[in-house]
Nucleic acid binder design. Structure first.
Lengths: 330, 330
DNA sequence: CTGTTAGCGCTTTCAC
DNA sequence: GTGAAAGCGCTAACAG
């Protein structure tokens, strides 16, 4: 057990100011009932002694830590980290800090991290689910959770998401308006709500334009780079590959682009429609239609909602959908 | 003040097991003096009641929170986040968790975050400094700090860094061996130790090969994309631009590449030497020599050292230099 | 308006 | 080996 060299406590402040610890505590917590003169006395003493409140002791009493947990599948992922940036900015405004946990897209790890957050007594959690499973989230006891980017089965709670359906629909519609009639689709894991919604946006857009659904150019994988590579290879190996291809996320796009470059295929005439804004799009020798997600805003909104819940907002779970932004890169 | 629905405490466990709270505490902390039978009794009770220790209460007593702070200039930066990934992995092994703080490369914000970490009573901190200033780090009271990626003026402590000098030197040497005699240099802010060390590696390599230092092709900016763009533009605007160019980091490379593509300059004959491994290198139509930093390992080593300090390692500050990895991308 | 007092849940001497 | 009791630094009835 480590000793603190010599910590100034409420007691010291109280003695120095000639008041009781209760009064000091009141001043610290902005209780308006304290007489102005007394409060000033206390503040002087605080100043003079360089007092800083021990948050741990406070937490023990109040059962509030003013910290929230955030669980993400991984950190070296621009998409997730832009969200975390938004979360942190918003939380700091309200005096909350962030405990960062990685789940490796793995339910077991997710469960562990939730236990850890329980033990740390965080006031709430923001989770980017690693899979579609969510029943283990109920281990998080009596504190609010806001889901981000994806929803899950088996656990109903607040969620902040992009409008995946409309983002995809609009991109496809844009291409159709430009003359596209045959649009390939590289999809993510259909267990993820976001992947499913994007697929539905694609299908509906085709349908609304009376375009046929050609299953030979609809391929499913997962959101990883390798998957994009393989699916693009498969697609381009067909007798007549499509000239328009929707790719469901950033990493798949990256992998797909890598294949295209390696293969030496002629890509000048290609039109890639893709979710997620990536700094690379400008470097690809084909035109892209990018469906950008407002990542920081997603994080910010999630944090905002979480704080409202922490402050006691009682209401049925809210699903917030944020509009995507379409960007044309020629 | 929120009420806990009904928390199981040591007291409950003690009663259930028919022992004192002291004994429960001993079992919890693995005290070998407890008789095996007693310990089993306690463990049964813990199991039966689903007891989980209140870490906050424990922290109040022990003055250890088992959490450490990590301050990084920003999160949406692959380089920093790969480091954080390494940190988190290592810390979790030892039961520590991570409080994430952003400094926006701003000393004032850095100071605030340090105060916050003080208040949260973290056991230590890992900092990626936003600038070369470090005297404000002394606000962090009596707890260890490990610096990462850069060192600072005015504060001496442990640091884990890449071998910037040797990484640069070797890349330049490699190019010279391949026949380069005129190598341009796009440098970062010379206030940052890493930028300075890379510059020195470049100079020394030239010198050791009896190559002249041509100041007209040595340009300085900062580590940002925009800077890379501008410097590359300036460089390529010269009557005889160099065919070999060293770029000091990831983001500058990105900006420089953007300029090269936009300008329509012929880049086939260009050789870019660049710090940091970026997934984009493969997409550029010129050959690259990449000096990759072992980012996760940097984080892991930093965490490891921090834990040793927390556990009481007394010794003069250690500077750990990790070797870089050279990658040729044709 | 302010002080007294009793804990929050845990660890840790000090006895036995 | 184990228990009794004090107390980490703070807050919140309850009195006055």
């Amino acid at each position: 057990m480590k000793k603190k060299s010599h910590t100034v406590t409420v007691k010291d402040v109280a003695r120095n100011a000639g008041v009781s610890t209760a009064t000091v505590s009141r001043v610290l917590n902005g209780d308006p009932k304290v007489k102005k003169d007394t409060a000033d006395l206390v503040r002087e003493a605080i100043e003079e002694l360089g007092y800083r409140m021990n948050q741990v002791a406070r937490s023990l009493k109040t059962n509030e830590t003013h910290s929230i947990g955030i669980i993400a599948p991984e950190f070296s992922n621009d998409f997730f980290m832009n969200i975390v940036t938004g979360v942190e900015k918003e939380l700091k405004k309200h005096g909350y800090s962030v405990i960062l946990c990685s789940s490796s897209e793995n339910t077991g790890k997710e469960k562990e991290q939730i236990q850890l957050l329980n033990d740390k007594n965080v006031d709430g959690a923001i989770i980017i689910p690693g899979s579609s499973l969510g029943s283990h989230f109920s281990l998080f006891r009596e504190k609010p959770i806001v889901l981000v980017d994806r929803m899950v089965d088996g656990f109903e709670t607040d969620a902040v998401l992009s409008d995946n359906f409309k983002g995809t629909y609009d991109a496809v519609q844009y291409s159709v308006n430009k003359g596209a009639v045959r649009i390939g689709f590289l999809g993510g894991n259909m267990n993820l709500t976001s992947a499913k919604e994007r697929y539905e946006g694609y299908l509906t857009a085709l349908k609304d334009n009376n375009l046929s659904v050609d299953e030979s150019i609809i391929l499913f994988g997962d959101y990883h780079s390798q998957s994009g590579y393989v699916l693009m290879k498969t697609l381009m190996g067909q007798t007549v590959p499509p000239e328009h291809i929707f790719i469901s996320n950033y990493f798949m796009h990256l992998g797909a682009a890598r294949y295209l470059l390696e293969s030496g295929n002629d890509v000048k005439g290609l039109h890639i429609l893709s979710f997620d804004d990536l700094p690379l799009a400008a470097f690809f020798p084909y035109s892209s239609i990018i469906v950008a997600q407002p990542m920081e805003e997603i994080g910010q909104k999630a944090a905002d909602l979480l704080i409202k819940r922490i402050q006691g907002l009682k209401e049925k779970p809210r699903i917030i959908r944020l509009p995507t932004i379409m960007k044309i890169v020629d």
